[in-house]
Write a protein that binds this DNA or RNA. Structure first.
Length: 303
DNA sequence: ATGATTTGACCCGA
DNA sequence: TCGGGTCAAATCAT
């Protein structure tokens, strides 16, 4: 990740965090797909796509393990190999995610009758059938998530373009569009708004679909860990482990995280940062079932 | 210098 | 006219 920032001259912390979380999210996907609960919930018609994704992710998992082995042995002359492996991992994840995001979108389309208590994304009636027609409403549908913390990082790169005080609401609504709106003509947008004060509840509403490719932000970035200040490590143990060091790789290889070396999260925070708060419910359930917990949060996230 | 965010003005449908 | 959504200049952060 550090080399991505350096070689692409990415200085913005927001952009860095977003890219970082993208990578971490994808690693999360690898672990989640091993969960039996995921298998149960995925409809039959998605099976072929899931198998494709599984296959790709298995490759990625293999590459990740190779990479970790190299990193564990600190082979100084293996930077090229590391770079190749890291690129392979990223490509695998990107391909798999593309497949999964496609299928999860179709699944969303069929989940209209989910119960209100369900924390799953809520697919609502198209806006153009409800009244005001705006450019946002021209998207065929939108999906709403409610969570105790605002969803700023969901695997995509967003740019804030507005903030508005909404009538009869004590909280402002923030407007975001995909960072690739111009470059890739991607029309995905989202709105984040606090809808309840105590306990805090945030609504994140997604409009449209990402037409930008997931991997465009980072998939082709070379990896270089030469910068000690910016160095990140892949962690293979459980995030709530009491020791903040890389554990014995044989202990639990299924839990993979990429963390900045000085940003491990406490178990309490890790709980707050539950995947269900910022991933699609399908993925979040799988993630939680598997025990994976993302563990990056920065001061800018919640400001 | 560059890119991201803020914020007041503007647009437009109800 | 109102109010939600968007634009874009100003401001901020790095």
């Amino acid at each position: 990740a550090s080399s991505i920032y350096k070689k692409r001259h990415i200085t913005s912390p927001t952009l860095r965090i977003s890219i970082h979380l993208k990578i971490k999210t994808e690693i999360g996907h690898i672990t989640t797909l091993k969960s039996p609960q995921v298998k149960k919930k995925i409809p039959k018609k998605m099976k072929s796509c899931q198998q494709k994704a599984m296959e790709t992710l298995r490759h990625g998992h293999g590459y990740a393990n190779q990479l970790k082995r190299i990193m564990d042995h600190s082979e100084s002359d293996s930077s090229m190999e590391r770079e190749d492996l890291a690129n392979s991992v990223l490509h695998c994840f990107s391909d798999a995610l593309s497949i999964l995001f496609d299928t999860s979108h179709h699944e969303d389309d069929e989940s209209n009758n989910s119960s209100p208590q369900d924390s799953s994304p809520v697919l609502e009636k198209p806006l153009h059938k409800r009244g005001r027609k705006t450019s946002m409403a021209e998207s065929s549908e939108y999906r709403r998530h409610e969570s105790p913390i605002p969803i700023y990082h969901d695997g995509f790169l967003w740019r804030k373009y507005g903030q508005k005080q909404i009538k009869e609401s004590h909280h402002q609504r923030s407007y975001y569009k995909c960072a690739y709106t111009k470059d890739k003509n991607c029309e995905a947008k989202k709105q984040v708004q606090q809808i309840q004060h105590n306990p805090p509840l945030y609504s994140t509403t997604y409009f449209g679909h990402h037409t930008c490719q997931l991997d465009q932000a980072y998939a082709t970035f070379p990896i270089d860990t030469s910068d000690p200040q910016d160095c990140h490590m892949i962690r293979f143990d459980h995030p709530t482990s009491s020791t903040h060091q890389v554990q014995d790789q044989n202990q639990n290889q299924n839990h993979i995280q990429i963390l900045p070396k000085d940003e491990y999260m406490s178990p309490e925070k890790a709980e707050d940062w539950s995947p269900s708060h910022w991933m699609s419910s399908e993925v979040a359930h799988a993630v939680e079932a598997f025990g994976f917990n993302p563990s990056i949060k920065t001061s800018t996230d919640l400001s």
